[in-house]
Structure formats: structure tokens, C-alpha cells
Amino acid sequence: MRKLDYERVTEKLTSFIQEKVDDSKASGVVIGVSGGIDSATTAYLAVKALGKERVLGLIMPYYQNRDIEDARLVCSSLGIEWEEINIKPIVDSFIAQLGFQPDKRSLGNIMARTRMVLLYAHANAKNYLVLGTSNRSEFLTGYFTKWGDGASDYAPLINLYKTEVWEIAKLLGVPERIIEKKPTAGLWEGQSDEEELGISYRLLDEILWRLVDLKMPKDEIAKELEVPIERVEYVDNLVKKSEHKRRLPVGPTF
């Protein structure tokens, strides 16, 4: 992986948040706090950049599990204002109007888009910006819901790989139990990011960095990392098939 000066990166991230909020004349930022590493790191960066008085955390569970406790821990540790909204009644009301029962992936997308609506409602009411929590690993592989958790005004972590976010989190003092927990999007009970992606974040990041940033040939990546070429091709396919999720809608030119 690339070698970063994480103290310098942290300074750049906080400056970025401060500049974007100031330039937009916003009063602060709102963040969806899930109890995971990405939202926790984003919240810690926002407080470092703006102060706790200008950061609002929204905890928006569908399932009642440990993630809620972890999200509360992040907000209370930072001393920020936070609200907890149970999205189950909202999501279930959507489903009741569909006329069919969505599969678990579609249900997860509805949950993510419901959270997006709530984030922007609070942002509009308070003249805040929505800070997204997507990292580069998820962005490049399309591991996010289009117009859901992929929707935000600014995404401070979007050019940092997941393994790099872990390092930033350690530097910021994010609670250890958040850093060490198994990554999950919380889209269904027992869901795990790495199981759903079909690859560990550490190997994924090593391949992505060489494939996307260094533009190395796939066979060379496989040889250097001592992995089957199929692993590299698998990641390359994730990037290619999710390209539409990384751009605004396009149409033909005339």
C-alpha cells in the first residue's frame, strides 16, 4: 500500500471540512452515525474541524443491536448533539405500499435511502451540510447504495482506502471497540462487509491501489501479491460494473 503521513492527512481532512463549511456559509454539519469505523472517523474529524457545537449526529437504526450502543458511544464521547430515529416504521410503511416483499438487498437500499432523506431534512432545517462517510474502497467497488449512503454534500474519506481509515481513526482516538469491530453496513442481521464483498479489506485495498492508482497490469498485480489472477479480475469486475454509481445520470448528445 501507499505510504501516507497520517498526521498530515488528518490536518488536510480537518482543513477540508472547515473550508467547505465556511465557503458554503453553512452553520455546521450532520452525520449519520452508524457505530462503524467510517462514520465514527468522520464525526471525530468534524468535531476537530468545527467544534462539537456545530456537529449533529443522527443515529438511525432499523435493527435493535449493538451498533446502536456503539453509535451512542461515539456521540457521547465527542459530546455532540445527537438524535436517535427508529427508521423501522418509516421503512415498513414504504414496503407496505410496494405491493410485494423486497429481498434483503432491496430492503437494505430502502433503509439507506430513508436515512439519506432524514439527513437532508435535518440539514435543511439547520442550514447544515451532510457529511458522507464513504471510503475509497467502497466507492471504487460500488459497495454503497446509489442515492442512499452514497449521497452527501462532501465526503472527507472518499479518497482514503478502508485500511487507511483505520489508521486515521487510531490517530484521532476513536474508541478501540469501534476500530476492532467487524465492518458491517447493518443492512440485515448478521451482515458483514467482507463476506458480502467476497474479499478482505486488506487484500482488496492492495489490489485496488495497484489496479486503479498505479494502473498495473493484472498479471503483475497477481504475481506481486502472490494471489491467483482470478482475485485481481474479481476486483477489476467490481470496479467496472459499478461505474454508473460514481457519476451523475448521463444521456445521449445531439
Rank of each mutant, 00 (worst) to 15 (best):
N135K: 11
N135A: 12
N135R: 10
S137M: 07
E138Q: 06
L140N: 04
T141C: 13
Y143N: 09
F144V: 09
T145N: 11
T145V: 11
K146I: 12
G148D: 12
D149H: 13
D149Y: 13
D149N: 13
G150L: 02
G150V: 04
A151K: 09
D153P: 08
D153S: 13
D153H: 15
D153I: 09
A155Y: 07
A155F: 13
L157T: 08
N159Y: 13
N159S: 15
L160K: 07
T163H: 03
T163Q: 09
I168K: 01
I168G: 00
I168A: 04
A169F: 10
A169S: 14
K170W: 00
L171I: 09
L172G: 10
G173N: 07
G173W: 10
G173P: 09
V174W: 04
P175F: 07
E176C: 09
R177D: 12
R177Q: 13
E180Q: 14
K181P: 08
K182P: 02
A185M: 12
G186N: 10
G186H: 04
L187C: 11
L187G: 08
E189N: 14
G190V: 06
S192A: 12
D193S: 05
E194N: 09
L197K: 05
L197Q: 08
L197R: 02
G198V: 04
G198L: 03
I199C: 04
Y201F: 08
R202S: 13
R202Y: 01
L204W: 05
E206D: 14
I207Q: 05
I207S: 01
I207M: 00
L208F: 00
